[in-house]
Design a binder for these strands. Structure first.
Length: 500
RNA sequence: GGCCCCGUCGUCUAGCGGCCCAGGACACCGCCCUCUCAAGGCGGUGACACGGAUUCGAAUUCCGUCGGGGCCA
């Protein structure tokens, strides 16, 4: 309850305003997605505003394609923003590259008030100083040369044509970050170098631009990754120097790979787009992600969007970093798959079938109905939508490829050829070709032949599906239809006669 | 190297001084169901990093050690 009050106090007179501020230098990854999610949930829970801001001041690495990819991923997850790209808002522009004048203005303010100074050191000089300090076994921070330049020295550098960067003057003392998740974190200022706020090319550094924007956009709560915690004291110093009110901070722990280092590409799939392509459901991903660092109670695992919005709170966000577990995500996805209605699922399945060349991208009504039935049979054993391809390919191909092991195990028994021939004959003769009728034929024949039902069923399964495992065979045969069933039984018999 | 964060089953976590010889979920194992594979049901294996201190009592508080990670360079 104590924590709750702290958050409400932070809201001040206004509603919660939070933001997600990605650099468009790649795709939205799992860690970023969870940060968006937490921000979104916080905003929705408090009836506040969620802002999307693009931090594209790194001209070299920022791309428009990245902006699009990130936006697509956020949308795909079913999350929306109230201000930002594509929707606008009163606090724009929402691209930092369009706010350069603003940063310069505030940088000037810092300069004129004596909180910042121009630094003429070149990268080479800095590098040299660093190496020298290292050699002497001293601390390798900025040596502070330009902090006390005289007017002449400055003029001399200017005359050389040097373009200065702007550094923030860090005073002695201590800066305390009052974090909603971590509590008070204290930093001694003497360990913090005078840092650059405006680069010599006129572009702001991350820390500076974030402070200016978060203030101008009236962000009340900064919910972001843990890796920014060490940046926070610098930002706080700037807030104070600029006379800005502090927002509340909440630093969420990072998501790690199995080796406990920051999750990255080498750990496998990390981009949200990739999960979409592989047949994951947005709801499943959201539900899995929210559980990485947040728990509502001792037992709940599955949460609908509505429940999440209602129940989410920063108090219950944990401090420990979390290892991303693809296995649990897979389980979660399977769970959501089974809860999705067949029409929706079939539509999704079509995409994957089409991509695999097993179906047209826009099947007609009859084919769609068939796919729906197939998905209905397959769904219990699917973990991703894409599994419809690997599990159900035999529904869509002309012929089947026999799994070698299954063939060996079930079709090479000596009673099999005769059995398949007889089953085929009987199936061709029955009136209706429903699962119930098919079952009667198979079980009936087993009884007559004095065999266990399994002894008949397994060879038939392999002959018709090519594999040892499938959905219930009677339903499968019904869906395949009489013609396909019979021709596949024929094919198996023929294969057994020529082969082996 | 300096600073900061973190440390409960393999993994995600519940736990905020006694309800805990630690609960749930995934994974794993077994049983049931069953035409196979799943799904589902039931059961099981499995953790408080270590050492001190505080306390009648510590997973929970404090200190140290160790381990992991991040940031700056």
């Amino acid at each position: 309850m104590q924590g709750m009050r702290a958050i409400e106090r932070g809201l001040g007179m206004n509603r919660a305003r939070v933001r997600f501020a990605p650099s468009p230098t790649g795709y939205l990854h799992v860690g970023g997605a969870r940060t968006v999610l937490f921000n979104w949930l916080f905003a929705r829970h408090h009836g506040g505003t969620f802002v999307l801001r693009i931090e594209d001041t790194d001209v070299e690495r920022s791309t428009e394609a990245s902006v699009d990819a990130i936006i697509d991923s956020i949308k795909w997850l079913g999350l929306d923003w109230d201000e930002g790209p594509t929707v606008g808002g009163r606090y724009g522009p929402y691209f930092q590259s369009e706010r350069l004048d603003i940063y310069r203005e505030y940088a000037d303010r810092l300069l004129s008030k004596g909180y910042a100074y121009p630094c003429y050191c070149t990268p080479d000089e800095l590098e040299e100083a660093r190496r020298a300090a290292l050699a002497r076994g001293e601390s390798v921070g900025y040596p502070g040369r330009c902090r006390h330049l005289s007017a002449e020295e400055r003029r001399a550098f200017e005359a050389e044509g040097r373009k200065p960067a702007l550094r923030f003057k860090v005073d002695d003392g201590e800066t305390v970050v009052d974090d909603l998740i971590r509590g008070e974190v204290r930093f001694e200022n003497r360990f913090i170098d005078d840092f650059v706020i405006l680069k010599s090319d006129g572009y702001p550094t991350y820390n500076f631009a974030a402070v200016v924007d978060d203030t101008l956009m009236e962000i009340s709560h900064i919910i972001r990754g843990d890796e920014h915690l060490p940046n926070t004291p610098k930002q706080i110093m700037m807030y104070r120097a600029l006379g800005f009110d502090l927002p509340r901070f909440a630093h969420v722990s990072m998501i790690l790979g199995p080796d406990r280092t920051k999750l990255s590409k080498r750990h496998g799939a990390t981009s949200i787009g990739q999960y979409r392509d592989e047949g994951y459901l947005p709801d499943a991903l959201v539900n899995y992600l929210v559980l990485l660092g947040w728990a509502y109670d001792a037992t709940s695992q599955i949460f609908s969007r509505e429940e999440l919005v209602e129940k989410f709170s920063l108090e219950k966000v944990s401090k420990n970093p979390a290892v991303f577990d693809p296995e649990k995500l897979l389980w979660m996805n399977g769970h959501y798959l089974r809860a999705t209605d067949l029409k929706t699922l079939a539509a999704l399945a079509v995409e994957h079938l089409a991509r695999a060349g097993l179906a047209t991208a826009s099947p007609d009504g009859r084919e769609m109905a068939r796919i729906e039935k197939i998905v209905g049979l397959l769904r219990e054993r699917m973990h991703t939508v894409k599994d419809v391809v690997t599990l159900g390919d035999f529904f869509f191909t002309e012929k089947v490829d026999y799994d070698a092991e299954a063939f060996e195990k079930f079709l090479t028994r000596d009673y099999v050829p005769e059995t398949l021939r007889e089953i085929r004959r009987r199936l061709a003769a029955i009136d209706a070709f429903t699962a119930a009728d098919v079952e009667k034929v198979l079980r009936g024949y087993a009884a007559e032949a004095g065999r266990k039902a399994g002894d008949i069923i397994h060879p038939v399964r392999v002959a018709v599906t090519g594999r040892a495992a499938s959905p219930g065979i009677f339903e499968v045969l019904e869906l395949l239809g009489r013609d396909v069933t019979c021709s596949r039984l024929d094919a198996a018999v023929a294969r057994l006669a020529t082969g082996s």
